[in-house]
Every structure is written in structure tokens, then in C-alpha cells.
Design a protein around this nucleic acid. Structure first.
Lengths: 138, 138
DNA sequence: ATTGATGCAAAGGGTTTGCAGAGTC
DNA sequence: GACTCTGCAAACCCTTTGCATCAAT
């Protein structure tokens, strides 16, 4: 059985077709919104509801299987918590570039220790203008 | 006249008591929500409306005088764009710690150049547990 | 006098929730 | 069979917007 599904059932949660599909699609699509996810899943599960998607995303976040990202456009995006990376977001056209790797973890851990804080997670989003949108006038 | 107010009028915007007050209070309070701001200003300007606060925050963000911060609690917080710093947020009690300084700017600029991206801004929030909330059970 | 800003209240949009029925274990 | 999960729809909350009025320049 899939490792992530196993994690669900190990925590006492049931494995439903909806959960299966949500994880499946998160593996293929990064930074999809809840509505994106729901729309895409309707192909395979026509009656799936947005409420279910939100409830399961919340569950997956509690289990740290999924992370939410904020691109400052009013809707959250969701990603599997597998590869640590960050995002460049174009402030004009919304274009997105990922950049992988991140050596912040250690830096942050050290800085946080000084103020008696245990770091679990961090989010870094970089905003600017992509090549096409030069960014000459705000 | 105040430098920030001057920036408003230089850009063709009028200097109103509401704007004066919003800037005044942003100088004293960091990471206040729109509602916080509105509530506090009602002491001096009893009829000020939430709509006005939002409209002016949007304006101030367009002028890059103000920045919005996302603490993952569903409401935006606003800060003057004066000193660059980041936040530690306790995932249990919501406690907030600022940590100043940030050498990301150069790092990001370099990384971004490689993908032909002009960096304007970035946001980094760190989530975890503060001393009191140990963080033993999620 | 002109033009932009405010207050009010209603609309908007993403997210959450209550409930009855269906599905998993 | 017990208990959770789902779908539906309504409720929620933050934020935005339209409009008539008011104020800054």
C-alpha cells in the first residue's frame, strides 16, 4: 500500500476513494488550489464536493503530509510536503518558478534557539517580475 | 511635513485625517490586522469605516509604504515597510517573535537572475512552537 | 470648483460547518 | 455494526465595491 495512505490508516483515518485521489493528484500537480483539485477530481469522482477537499486538505496538513502556500492572490495552494523548495511569483502575470533546495533550515534553527523557539516549518515566497513583465512601472 | 504623507501627495493622493491616523498607528503597532487598525482609530475618528482602512492599506501597499504579512490565521497583518525583518509564529498560541536583519536579499537576487526574474520583495514566515507550547503533540 | 476620499451597506469569494445518508473497517 | 467520511447547502469571515455625500486641493 502507498506510504501516504498507510500514514492515514496508521493514524486511525479511513482510506476513501476521495483521499486516494487527492493524494494521487497532489503528486502530479504542485500548487493547485482547493478548487483546482476539486475540479480535476470531478473527472474521476463526479460527485466529490469542495467541502470534502477542504476537510481532507486540513487533515493532510495536520499530518504534515501537505503544505499550504500563499501567493498573495487570495487563495491557498497546496503541495505535498516531499521536496523542500520555494517559489518565485510574478506580480504581474502570476507566472511561477520553483527553486529547489534551501539552506535556511539550519540558519533558522540557530536563530530560533536563541529565543527559545522550536521551528517546525517555514514559508518563503519571492515576489517580483518575470522576464516578460519587465517590471518597469508598478 | 511627514515624509510618508509627502509621498502620498507627491503621487497625487490627498492627505486626509484617516490616512494620517493610519500611518501614525502603523508606526506604533506592527502586524495589526485591518480590523485592529479600524478599532484603534475609532478612538480618534469614531466614524472611520473598515472600507476606508482597507482602501488605504491597498493604496499604501501599491506605493510600497506598507507590507502585508500572512500568519496563516486567515487575516492579513500590515506593517510599515521600514525595517526589514521576519517573524516566528507559534502554531499553538499564536505568539509572535520578530527577528531582524536578513541576508536573503542578495542570495535571492542571484538565484533569481539565473531564471531571468527581477526580485521586488519576499516574505519569510517561520512556524513552530514557542517555549510555553513545547510542541510535544501536534 | 474639481476631483478624489469617506461611510455605509451590500456583495463577493474563499473556507468552514451542520446534518443526514453512505461507506470503511 | 460502529463510527467515520461524504455531499450538499448554508453559514462564516475577511475583503472588496457601488453609491451618494463630503472634503482636500
Amino acid at each position: 500500500m502507498d506510504a501516504l495512505l498507510q500514514q492515514l490508516s496508521a493514524n486511525g483515518y479511513k482510506i476513501t476513494p476521495q483521499r486516494r485521489l487527492i493524494l494521487e493528484m497532489l503528486r502530479e500537480n504542485r500548487h493547485a488550489s482547493a478548487e483546482d483539485i476539486c475540479a480535476m477530481l470531478k473527472q474521476k469522482e463526479p460527485n466529490i464536493s469542495l467541502g470534502t477537499v477542504y476537510r481532507n486538505l486540513a487533515l493532510l496538513m495536520r499530518l504534515r503530509i501537505v503544505t499550504a502556500v500563499d501567493f498573495r492572490d487570495g487563495r491557498a495552494r497546496y503541495e505535498l510536503n516531499d521536496s523542500h523548495h520555494h517559489h518565485l511569483v510574478c506580480m504581474r502575470c502570476g507566472k511561477l518558478v520553483e527553486f529547489p533546495g534551501c539552506d535556511l533550515k539550519n540558519v533558522l534553527g540557530d536563530a530560533a534557539e536563541k529565543v527559545n523557539f522550536r521551528v517546525i516549518d517555514h514559508s518563503l515566497e519571492v515576489f517580483g517580475y518575470c522576464g516578460k513583465c519587465c517590471g518597469c512601472s508598478p
